[in-house]
Design a protein around this nucleic acid. Structure first.
Lengths: 209, 209, 209, 209
DNA sequence: GACTAACCGAGACGGTACGTCCCGTCTTAAG
DNA sequence: CTTAAGACGGGACGTACCGTCTCGGTTAGTC
């Protein structure tokens, strides 16, 4: 998420610089906006959500939104980020393949049952707006990648995975098919797919010989 | 592409079905619209292209566009489909891995040098519009998948690939990473990636034992 | 009513000249158009009636309408003219005042119960289109004026009215208030008004001294 | 003229009613719109004037027009009302007939030389739109009627006119013929007609016997 | 306790594009 | 040559939102 000033303000606590003068940002409005965004998303879908609609639903002036977010996509992204924070739990089955499968099952489940359409909407926006794409990569994609990275690195430490394996490539080989199915909807993100993917990756990585 | 009525026009003499009454569709306008769409796309990018703009550029009434296409995305998709028709050439190197690599090099090259942004735009639309997503799958995705399918089936015939291999899954494993990089732009679609993908797939499929 | 060719054709029967070659004008379509126009007028009001709507309702091509009438107003005017033909009956009470009152009662009644809104619509068009105004004057206004003229001239012959009375002015003094109320709708076209008008006119004309 | 909300804004200090929130209506735009409407009317005639054209000419968004007026006719009516405000001057010749003649000469002159076509256009609209007709009656017709009413009432006070005369009917008898000629254009609104009308009315009213 | 600054709601503003309606013209095949 | 059908270029409609602006009013810290 990008705001015009928020970082400055966030720093003030740490740096001991006193708060800027004037009325401080209303947390009530802030949360009301995010809640409204989420609600409207569910009810009408991303395309039909408008800044004007969010403002009305939140009982807030449009300017208050524009002051803190650059676009509708940014609001939605923050709302979604808040919503999913802490939802990723790291599995610990003892081996890479098990961890991977558990992780994918969890991810597929969430995308299938809850946030799939929302993630699609956000990606849709990212495809047309480079600045937003950066935000999305920073906030959303990066954290998912690093979760996988951790799983794979654990495998390296355990000796299951060759130490010179190309981790980043491997992550692409895992998330790639997942996104492909998510976006194209031509085949399900189900248990079987999680197994197949995990098996493939295990085969790909597991040959240090 | 979706039109309101089938353009199938069987031989009236034989079938007894007479041609539709009324002035026939203008091929001049049809091509002018597609040309205008392509031109504006290059000049201004998908988001800035409007139906109104295409109509003006093509010297055509807006209604003429709305009569034959349901949305801006549909026009662009048809324009793009025409543009790329016949551009996919099937490689013949004698083995699956070689064919695959050659095919991917070709595909990556085109996406990187020419049509990447356009494909991203179309996918963006497909993510928000299910009806359009179907069109896109039918016109664009399907033909790419069947190209890969042919390559893999050739491998089965040659005995390089196990006869019980899951071809559709394999296609996902190839196109998935390609799309993932295309959409997220976090790593290049380069020669090296083509090699890596081909190797991985060869490894994945090539063990009938 | 103005048509581009109808008079030529009308003459051909009389002059013995054989009909023009080609398919003759369809009387079926002609009457269907007028009927459709009248039907739509009643259902939706003049403003909402369109050439396209009439054509559809009549099961006729638009061109067929444009070939024979210059505008929607012309179609409506002809439909209305047909509808009212022969509806004006001349009263004969023996004196000007009685004739006038009877005539006005009849006219007011028709405008109030049936054709008021339609006449208003036609006048509306005439106010913006000079060519149509001429048609309307020829077809509609003129016949009403000559009816009154006859009544007044009968009075002159009987000696009730001064022979040098300004008949045309008098007609204006009668129809003026009638139209004024019809258009402004601020007061009714009722029996009392017919009496008052007749009395006023009798007073105005009846003093040859 | 009809606006969506009353612009009555009583003194907030006294009444305790605070001003409406939000950015106040722009007087600049308001006047620019009326000026543009008048200008376009003169240049192109009522039928060719469009809301879009007025907006462009005034340098204003279309919505700004739609926010405050329900139709093109309403804009034009307000523009015209402003334009004619204070143009009616009451004559004082000492007797009803003189006053009437002077008043009519003035009115005929204005309609003939300046505003005739505009008034016809407005009436055209009023004939098809009841809501607008009410506006027009309130703003335009009513003020003209009350001018005449004053002249006639003066006559009653002076004893020239019978005290039980039907003033409203008399007004119809005067304005009726005027409108009739204005609308049908079959005879001029000239000096002679003003005399004839005045004479007729004087005869009609001036018999207290 | 006044002053100042930034916030807030409300909503009007100039704009752009939408998708629709209908205009009057045209181009077919059929009669 | 007319007809029904219906596509065509075009113009305007009235609406939805955009992102900006301008009000009155609120809520803090600073003088």
């Amino acid at each position: 998420m990008k705001t015009k000033r928020s970082r400055i303000k966030t720093d003030s606590k740490l740096s001991g610089i006193t708060a800027r003068p004037g009325r401080p940002r209303s947390t009530t409005s802030h949360t009301a906006i995010l809640a409204a965004a989420l609600k409207l998303l569910r009810k009408k879908g991303y395309r039909s959500v408008t800044i004007e609609g969010i403002a009305a639903e939140a009982g807030v002036g449009k300017q208050t939104i524009y002051r803190w977010w650059p676009s509708k996509a940014a609001v939605v992204l923050e709302a979604f980020a808040r919503y999913t924070t802490g939802r990723i739990t790291m599995p610990d089955t003892g081996n890479v393949r098990g961890d991977l499968e558990a992780f994918l099952v969890q991810a597929f489940d969430m995308l299938t049952r809850e946030s799939g359409q929302l993630v699609r909407s956000l990606m849709s926006e990212a495809l047309l707006d480079d600045e937003f794409a950066v935000s999305m990569r920073d906030i959303f994609i990066a954290s998912r990648r690093s979760a996988l990275r951790e799983i794979l690195n654990n495998g390296v430490e355990r000796g299951e995975v060759a130490s010179d394996a190309d981790i980043e490539l491997t992550i692409d080989l895992i998330y790639g098919p997942m996104w492909y199915r998510l976006l194209n909807n031509h085949a399900p993100l189900d248990l079987k797919f999680a197994e197949q993917l995990s098996e493939m990756i295990a085969g790909f990585m597991g040959r240090p010989d």
